[in-house]
Structure formats: structure tokens, C-alpha cells
Design a protein around this nucleic acid. Structure first.
Lengths: 146, 146
DNA sequence: TTCGAATAGTTGTTTAACTAACTATATGCC
DNA sequence: GGCATATAGTTAGTTAAACAACTATTCGAA
């Protein structure tokens, strides 16, 4: 198989990820308009906590593809916003277990609706089978570089 | 056409762009290993200047999908590295035309090779036609949100 | 021709990513 | 049991993105 699928001049948008940047910007604007006082990065942490909270910062690192200092600061800021609480684990005192507050739970539905809305706007006019191919390609790319 | 192509639980990686993040991180590591003292963002500006220099900061904004303050700061840092020079336009004194220095020109070939190498690693095992579909989908997404 | 609007760029502030260096706790091997 | 090593998390420093507010210059229309 030819391993040289990119010509010079086509590299740029793949590397800079302009599509995902555009999606994130659009979603951020929807959050702002809806008075949801959240950054996309904060939302991405809550996204995983809505599925399961009481997990460690390290588990959040793995889930969000971020390093430990990034999660430390995101949890700092989410704590300031009173959306999460750090609770020291009793089994392993090195770990903080991160719990959602009731306010954070209230934000789930509205923010997820805005996220779905954003993706539907983004994918308007794209056939469903091509979306599937694209998702699969991006997953392989991620796995190749992991 | 059903407009609801994403189920809850599939939103995350599309919005956070984990594939392009992984590509950028891999390329950054290659730059560091090769003693190329450049960030990916700085490289993305040089990328356009290698095609044509003597363009304005506004043109760099359009080419790189960044806002004006971002370009101001990137050009600041590239100037500190002595890779570009701001030259006030004589036709329109509001504009800075950005020129490459000889040092910057020397970095083109090596850095583009590393970028191509990174993309080839990223796309290993992905059939060429699927790469094309994926590029097309990402272009439509960008256009839909522009 | 002049004054209001548009355009080009800068500065300040907040949030975040990445690296390196650090503390504290836990694990495992001798 | 004690010490080296690994793991969980924090702190500090640099770079960058987004937004708002700002200056300087140009354009355009009355």
C-alpha cells in the first residue's frame, strides 16, 4: 500500500484540525448564548463525570486525553464554579475522587442538547455512511499515534 | 435525511478533536527531537509564508483560521526567534507585511518532511479512498460552521 | 472636505496545554 | 522492616486561544 497519501499542500488542515476547532467554537458560542457559564474544556470533563462520578483525576486524564497538570487546573476551576468536589480516597490517600454537585447535574441535559445540535449543524449534508467512515478513520489515526 | 446522526455518547471525540490533537503532539515531538525550535502553531504560520511571504497579518489570519490577536502574538514570537520581519506597507500604513528571514527558509524542507512523515504514520492502514472521504467530510463540517 | 464607518493591528485578561520539577503516598523486593 | 520505585497529584513557567477594548489609518458618502 502506498504510504504517501498526502501531497505537500494538503497537510495543513489535517494537522491543525480546523473542523474540530470550528465545532468547539460553535458549541462555546451556544453555551454563552444559553448563559451556560462553561468552557468547552470544562464541559468535556463534566461529560465524563455525568457518565460516572467519583472517579480519580487520573481516570479523568485517560478519559479526556489530557495530562495531569491540565486536569488539576480544570478541576481547580470547576471547584471554584462549585460544579465538582474533590474527596480524598480512603483506600488510597494519594487519590482525589471527583464528585459532581447538584448544580453540575442540572447542566447535563441542556448542554448535551446543545452539543448534539452543534454536531447536527456541522454534519448537515453529509451522508450518514460517510460520517461513519470519517469517525473510523479518526479513531485509527488516534490509535496509530497513541 | 435524518439529521440526528450522533447518539449521545458519541459526541465527545468529534468535538474535542482527539485525532488532530494526537497528530499535532506527535509532530511537536518530532520537531523537538530534530532540534527544530518551533511550536506547531509557529510552524503553521511559517507553512503559509513558505508558500508566499510579504503578506499581511490579516491574510495570515484568514489562512490559519486564527483571530487577529493570535496572529499578533505568533508574529511577535516568530520575530523574537528572528524567523520573520514585520515591514510596514507603503501603500496602506495600517498593514504589516510579514517576510521570512533566511533562517526561516532553511527550516522549510526539514519541517515539511517531518509533517509528511507524521501524517503517514497517522494514516497507516487507512485506505486512500477513506482518507479522501474523511478530508471531504471535515471540509464540509468546516464550511457548515464558517 | 469632512466626518462616520470600516479595516489593520495591539494590548489586557482569562482559560488551557505542555514540560519539568516537585511532594506525598503506596508497592514490592531484598 | 526498610529502601528503591512507581503512582497520584500539585506548582511554576512558557506558549497559545478567545474575547473585549483600544489606537491608527483608510474609505466613502453627504
Amino acid at each position: 500500500m502506498p504510504n504517501n497519501q498526502f501531497k505537500k499542500g494538503e497537510l495543513y488542515s489535517f494537522i491543525t484540525g480546523k473542523a474540530s476547532t470550528a465545532i468547539a467554537r460553535r458549541l462555546q458560542k451556544k453555551f454563552n448564548s444559553a448563559q451556560l457559564n462553561l468552557t468547552i474544556e470544562q464541559w468535556s470533563v463534566l461529560y465524563h463525570l455525568w457518565k460516572e462520578d467519583g472517579i480519580s483525576q487520573q481516570e479523568l486524564c485517560n478519559a479526556t486525553f489530557r495530562d495531569k497538570p491540565s486536569i488539576t487546573r480544570l478541576v481547580d476551576n470547576l471547584e471554584k464554579l462549585k460544579l465538582v468536589k474533590r474527596v480524598a480516597s480512603k483506600e488510597d490517600r494519594r487519590m482525589n475522587m471527583i464528585y459532581l454537585t447538584p448544580e453540575a447535574r442540572k447542566m447535563q441535559e441542556a448542554s448535551m442538547e446543545l452539543a448534539e445540535e452543534t454536531l447536527n449543524e456541522a454534519l448537515t449534508g453529509v451522508p450518514a455512511d460517510q460520517v461513519e467512515i470519517c469517525k473510523a478513520v479518526l479513531q485509527i489515526v488516534y490509535d496509530n499515534l497513541k
